[in-house]
Amino acid sequence: MNTSNLQLNNTDAARHFSFKATVRDAGIGLALIGLIIIFSVSSEHFLAANNITNILTQITINLILAVGMTFVILIAGIDLSVGSVLAFAAVIAGKAITMPGLDPIAVIALAVMAAVLAGLVCGLLNGLISAYWGLPSFIITLGMLNIARGGALHISEAQTIYSFPKLFNDFGSATVLGVPVVFIVALSMVAIAWFILHKTVFGRMIYGIGNNEEAVRLAGHPVFWYKVAAFSICGLTAGVAAIVYMARLGISSPIAGIGFELNAIAAVIIGGTSLMGGRGSVFGTLLGACIIGVLANGLILIGLNDFLRQMITGLVIIIAVVLDYYRDKYTKN
């Protein structure tokens, strides 16, 4: 009976999915367009080509982290460790990339692998521990937040690591037709995540776990491993974000990424993904990250002071979530 329920839920979800998601994303898109109109009227610099390039560069790290965070929130989890894992991965990769006596290509390849692997391992541990013992991911990833931050400080001896190969730093500031290459990397990750979530059984079951974990289990799916995979993906994106951080700034700092987890969560939630799991999309996450980035940029361009800027950012997050509540209510009826 549970199995048939699940199938019913699935077809139900599939039928309504595209329509509901479209309305939802359109709503967030309208909010974004509204912000863009406000800022282009109030600042002459906002729509300038190089400012658009700047905004895209500035949202890249948050977008990459938020893509991974989307998987975790869809299964009704949370990952508070991504900012610290970013620093941990960056420090390990920083050690690799500054190893003397190797040619630039070799150390860059080594650093990229090291960062991705470090992120993956942290995510894997988050997933294994919280799924095996059925513990709240909130507290497990809070533990990982401290482990990774402490690890980053320990390995780097709290020193900023610098002097990276020129080729690597150039990658961080390269643009194609005004679009930052690092942003193209982030967009590809959005596309891959979209494909996984909507075109694979694993992706459908990620939604399923968020909606009704027991039903997915009874249908014979390895829920445990799907959960571990979701956290691993999130850790992996933190590793990729670490590489972007290093390439953009030319350093690895053990205090990098403090508070990044909250921005990533905000992007996911503004993008319409439910903290209760089972509902949302990675396309919404992209829009959510854009809203946060446009706000941070635009509020400085119009000359608003730091404290008011912080207040308005907070206000927008609340408004976005309240609007989403009404949109959801409307699309259900």
């Binding site: 300038a48 700047n54 560069t57 500035q58 700092s253 205090i255 990098a256 940029n297 400085i300």
Partner: peptide, 17 residues
């Protein structure tokens, strides 16, 4: 907030303005 990445973003936007 004493931090490199935030300074990079904030200053870029100040320079635009």
């Amino acid at each position: 907030h004493w931090e490199t990445e935030e300074a990079n973003n904030v200053f870029t936007n100040m320079l635009t303005a």
